[in-house]
Write a protein that binds this DNA or RNA. Structure first.
Length: 109
DNA sequence: TTTATGGCTGTCA
DNA sequence: ATGACAGCCATAA
């Protein structure tokens, strides 16, 4: 009932649910977290990840199906490596067939 | 309290 | 297909 969790916690919860070998967009995560339209906040939430974050943040990409160029220059390269390790075939543009690897959670999960 | 920023998204050229 | 612009809104200072 009194869900006092911050929006970040919801986002983290959703990201945690992303299965391996699958990816989700910020907008998608935001929507699943109950924050439709707050895609950016998702990014900030991940940026504000706590030290005990065990979240597969690397499975969260932008709507273009590519990793987002964030503040840290090598981070996108690192993220790509993580996704490749999960079976996501990247092409020469740091992108991949999003619709084929897009995580499709059930609405009534 | 206000101001500034931002790991985005969607539309238009 | 890629590039550019504006809009949404929460968090941090």
């Amino acid at each position: 009932m009194k869900e006092r969790e911050s929006n970040y916690d919801r986002i983290y919860a959703v990201v945690k649910r992303i299965p391996k070998g699958r990816v989700a967009t910020y907008g998608q995560v935001a929507k699943l977290a109950g924050l439709p339209g707050h895609a950016r906040q998702v990014g900030y939430a991940l940026h504000a990840l706590p030290e005990n974050h065990r979240l597969p943040w690397h499975r969260v990409v932008n709507a273009k199906g590519e990793v987002s160029p964030r503040s840290y220059p090598f981070a996108e390269d690192m993220q790509r490596a993580f996704l490749e390790a999960e079976g996501i075939p990247f092409d020469g543009r740091n992108r991949f067939p999003l619709e084929e690897y897009r995580w499709r959670p059930r609405k009534a999960l």
